[in-house]
Amino acid sequence: MVLIAPLGFLGDYQLFRLTLIATYALALLGLNLVMGFGGQISLGHGAFYASGAYTTAILMTSAGVPYWATLPCAGAAGAALGFLVGWPALRLRGHYLALITLALATAIPQALKCKALEPWTGGVQGVIIDKPGAPFGLPLSPDGWLYLLALAITAVAFTLVANLLRGRIGRAIVAVRDHTLAAEAMGVHVARLKTRTFALSAALTALAGSLGALETEFVSPDSFTVFLSITLFVGSVVGGVASIGGAVAGAVFIVMVPPLANSVSRAAPGAVYGVILIACLYLMPSGIAGLLRRAAASSWWRKRKRGGEHVA
């Protein structure tokens, strides 16, 4: 209820920012699944975000598909791309996933500008789409409706991922991260599990990209440069990589900090990201979520919930 309350009194721009936070939280949930729980490093989740955004934009404008029906398609497109990229890299040990994902993120804006695809992608100009209005005659502005939609989808995704991680598959994912050999000896098919986890993660981020496209009403190659992928990486690490709540903290960080930094200078967001990232890795490697958890564990929470266990 607290999360629905802003609909009553916030203006459209504030709602837009809140919607962005919910969207990035979903994207970071995907990234945290791979980096925090899977122990793999992706520097290219912006590419999956882009694939979702473009799937929605192209289906809406070229095929006339209603926006809500494009959301599952965007997830599927992200999963397919994630599988394609993850499959060659995840069979191997080492930093190949980081390398190939960074390569993907670098290559994707150029590929989207390609002349052959222009009838669908709009080339450099990109695609303009309409912001959907509220259905069933609900008394909401389009921004209000999108906020509700993003909130609902993100909440469902968080619940599903939390359940997944608590179950057998989640334990297998964490086991592979902590001791690959032992997990393999216990019967976990390591390469297959890693690839599927990565595909799921890509699907979540693509779904976020699809929501993002609806919010900004516009997709273009220059919105999905390698800097987007790096922003997601920074958000994930600063928020707290091995926790689900960290995705929300990271999303607040990447939505709130750049406008503040931008008012100083154009170079500032990059520098601020870089400095905070390095400081974070040195001083609080478990991110904002880890910091909050430790603070909570050392105070009243401990007395009330003695013996309560934590998953991560």
Binding site: A98, V234, R266, Y273, L277, L281
Partner: peptide
């Protein structure tokens, strides 16, 4: 340090140098 930390530092370095050039 774990891999994530080192890659994170490389990315931080990348961001800082990039911003410094622009600045």
């Amino acid at each position: 340090a774990p891999d994530l930390t080192l890659i994170g530092v490389f990315i931080g370095l990348l961001l800082i140098l990039n911003a410094l050039c622009g600045w």
